[in-house]
Design a binder for these strands. Structure first.
Lengths: 340, 340
DNA sequence: CTGTTAGCGCCTTCAA
DNA sequence: TTGAAGGCGCTAACAG
């Protein structure tokens, strides 16, 4: 497994290291003859450049760090896929890490990636305390955050560019859609306090309901995270004491899935008795048996936007300003909503 | 963004580079006093080691390359998650790449990762031609393949250790389960020729059917890959010309999902009229509304096994033998199968 | 056009 | 206990 270096090639070709280096990097100032000969020898010997050594000099690795909570969650997996694909097309490679949404773990990973000299970092983080934790490290390397940059219940703001969906508009859009269908008793289920994302979504819902002169009903989820189980619990609660609800706007698709399950249990038909609207458009939502109508997070755009922002930040390391990109949400109609 | 180096620290502390290096690496032969002082200065200055430079000397990066077809596919995402988590616990980081199952892309990625001096490589590849492509590169770095190592329709074998599910046993196990439920007209749907994995699965099915003295029915999928759409097409074909089938054994869960959908369309009840068994146990299968009974791929074990094999290969680079680990399949009972 | 030299950031002998 | 010097693989001046 001993790898052949530029020196070995030089020796065989009977030239200096520098000449070999020139031949490899397409530098000018070398005759076609020697270049061809050197390249040929490289091929024969199975030479492959040591990218590390190269990076050490150029001070550029062409590697981006990417931290997501959990790659086995389809939402993050899709975002990661798009980031990787797009970054690669721009000549960058991605080093992916799972933070498990643990602040200390995130900080460690950040540290590690910086040590690895990544050219930039993308942090996907829906947890406010995670971002609070890395806040002080943000100056170390150009960073883009996917998600909210503000921290709920505080005035802190991360010093990094960011891109996110307009969650307020999403909450509004979804609510107005249900309103347009003739629903009036619309319940917002699964609001998770302490998350800026959730706070914005529910605000959109409230604003739309208020504008329509209707009563707002919010079921809070006090779990640490949104899950099918949380949705199931909340759904049971809702359907058991059936309060005349005709439509449910779930805080996330996972929660919606749980609500669906609860509806089955309680003999509530969706969309016969109750319409159900999700938020995120995770891939499960599109499954034939699910067919969840939902608000799309526009993952490809989110991913591409984040990479673009990062490229920009890398290109202008001295610029002292951050930019926030906010994407307009879109409604994906499937089969879980019906006019009243 | 200028990073502080060991030299800067040395200058400030008024010692030599070497002393700083010793302080950082816990080497013996340095007084506690200076060590403490140096470390303190490092903290103050925000020093962080350049892992690249370190790797250049040690000839070890503590990075593993991981190539999967597509991380947005939940199956690979889960495997990747387990690999990353386990590898990290062993002090390794993972560099993840999506091959899109394109042989040339895979070869390029392999090349890149080798150039990056990864200590080892894990290749998840269900496509025979992809492995054919990288076969010649396998000697460059310790490699473990997750999946079949043999190539269908050829006698070629990859020179690398490998780990995979016992697909033959899985085919058998599933078939025997359906048999035990009293089914006799069992159709194997979605066999994809040219894939060793599929070939093994269908062989298991055939063997079990033969042993029971029953007729085998195999519906081939001539698409390049297994998908919900392929399953939908095959399911329609099957249910339209209803040949007395009472149970379907789908080649993969994705195919099973498509079959479910086709059943809905054709007014066939699952499991009322027809039992449905999948293969893989992707996360969709566990969703309440799906509840697919299936053969589990045991992803955590697959992942851990692959990493263990790789660690072993890295530890013994001169060993000239490959090992094949084959995992026993397990049945996951949910709600899509019923006694006849 | 080609070779020599220095150095990227770090570690590791070998002396002192 | 500490310092000086060499080198990992490669690039980038500067000479020749």
């Amino acid at each position: 497994m001993k790898s052949v270096t530029i020196k070995d090639i030089a020796k065989i070709a009977g030239v200096s290291y520098a000449t070999v280096s020139r031949a490899l990097s397409n530098s000018p100032g070398i005759s076609e003859a020697t270049r061809a000969r050197v390249l040929e020898i490289c091929r024969e010997q199975g030479y492959r450049p040591n990218i590390l050594a190269r990076s050490l000099i150029s001070n550029k690795t062409n590697v981006l760090g990417l931290i997501v909570p959990d790659i086995s969650n389809t939402f993050y997996a899709e975002v990661a896929f798009h980031i990787e694909t797009y970054a690669r097309s721009l000549g960058y490679n991605v080093m992916l890490c799972n933070s498990l949404s643990k602040p200390e773990q995130t900080a460690k990973l950040f540290e590690f990636l910086v040590g690895h000299q990544v050219d930039g970092m993308i942090l996907v983080s829906p947890h406010d305390d995670e971002r609070t934790q890395v806040a002080r490290q943000l100056g170390l390397v150009p960073t883009v955050i996917i998600g909210d940059c503000e921290i709920a219940d505080s005035s802190a703001v991360c010093e990094a560019s960011s891109i996110r969906l307009d969650n307020f508009a999403g909450g509004q859009l979804g609510t107005e859609y249900l309103l347009g269908l003739g629903h009036e008793e619309i319940f917002y289920v699964g609001y998770r306090p302490g998350s800026m994302t959730h706070t914005r979504r529910v605000s959109g819902y409230k604003a739309a309901m208020k504008a329509a002169g209707l009563r707002r009903h919010v079921l809070e989820n006090t779990d640490g995270s949104s899950s099918v189980e949380a949705g199931l619990r909340l759904g049971r609660e809702l359907f058991r004491c059936g309060q005349g609800c005709t439509a449910v706007f779930a805080a996330t698709d996972s929660v919606a899935l749980g609500v669906m399950n609860a509806a089955d249990e309680c003999g509530v038909s969706i969309p016969g008795d109750v319409s159900l609207l999700g938020f995120d458009n995770i891939s499960y939502a599109a499954l034939p048996k699910i067919g969840l109508t939902t608000i799309d997070q526009r993952k490809p755009r989110l991913a591409a936007g984040a990479v673009d922002l990062l490229m920009d930040a890398i290109g202008h390391p001295d610029r002292e300003e951050d930019v926030r990109r906010i994407i307009r949400p879109a409604l994906v109609e499937r089969t879980t909503c019906r006019p009243r």
